[in-house]
Computed example of a mutant assay.
Amino acid sequence: MFYPEPIAKLIDAFSRLPGVGPKTAGRLAFHVLRMKEDDVLDFAKSLVSVKRNLHYCSVCCNITDVDPCRVCQDKSRDASVICVVQEPKDLVALERMKEFNGYYHVLHGAISPMEGIGPDEIRIAELLKRLGDDTVQELILAMNPNVEGEATTMYISRLVKPFGLRVTRIAHGLPVGGDLEYADEVTLSKALEGRRELS
């Protein structure tokens, strides 16, 4: 089947997004075709605005429209604790909880030799610069519980040992309401490792 060039280009553009296959790209393109012109223009403006108006925070490397970002500007936070996360969306998930009051550092990925991502491709150097003074006392490593997250956690924990910081990691294990039979080996292993005594 052959589409007119504008719709074919739009399908191609959507199919380059992660997790969007050819059929979904086609559905999205035809949805855009049915949208009102004003809505399409607003959508296009939003895409351009994201590219033009967002950059990385000079302190924590989170995406932001102001520098430093709003979290780093907040002087009421505990400067002695930095929580290291892989992606900006991880920071958002932790902030939504409203339990953590320290600062963050966003790596923008994890070490993955299979994908050619080494320590130099993520924001570890920027993290080390932040540890130069005696302000930070604890580093919380909040990487994803997978092979890449584990590799990144181990690498950073060894790297920061000379700083004399307390290095902790978030607990991993089974989610509430989860079934053992559906859990992968890494999750089960972490659940066993993090077991606690019942009182």
Rank of each mutant, 00 (worst) to 15 (best):
P6W: 00
A8W: 04
D12W: 11
P18K: 11
P18Q: 07
V20S: 00
G21E: 05
K23S: 10
T24G: 06
G26L: 09
R27W: 05
M35I: 06
E37S: 15
E37G: 10
K45C: 10
K51R: 14
K51P: 05
K51L: 12
H55F: 09
S58G: 07
V59C: 13
N62G: 15
V66H: 06
A79T: 14
Q86L: 09
D90P: 11
L91D: 07
L94D: 04
L94R: 03
L94A: 07
E95G: 05
E99G: 03
G102E: 04
G102P: 02
L107Q: 00
L107V: 05
H108E: 13
P113L: 15
P119F: 01
D120Y: 13
D120G: 08
A125Q: 09
L127Q: 02
K129I: 13
R130M: 04
D134E: 13
L139M: 07
L139I: 11
I140L: 04
I140G: 05
I140M: 02
I140V: 08
I140S: 02
N146D: 11
E148C: 06
E148P: 09
G149K: 03
R158C: 10
L159C: 06
V160W: 01
V160F: 02
K161M: 12
I170L: 03
A171S: 01
G173N: 05
L174P: 02
V176M: 15
G178L: 03
E185Q: 12
K190F: 07
A191Y: 04
R195T: 11
E197H: 15
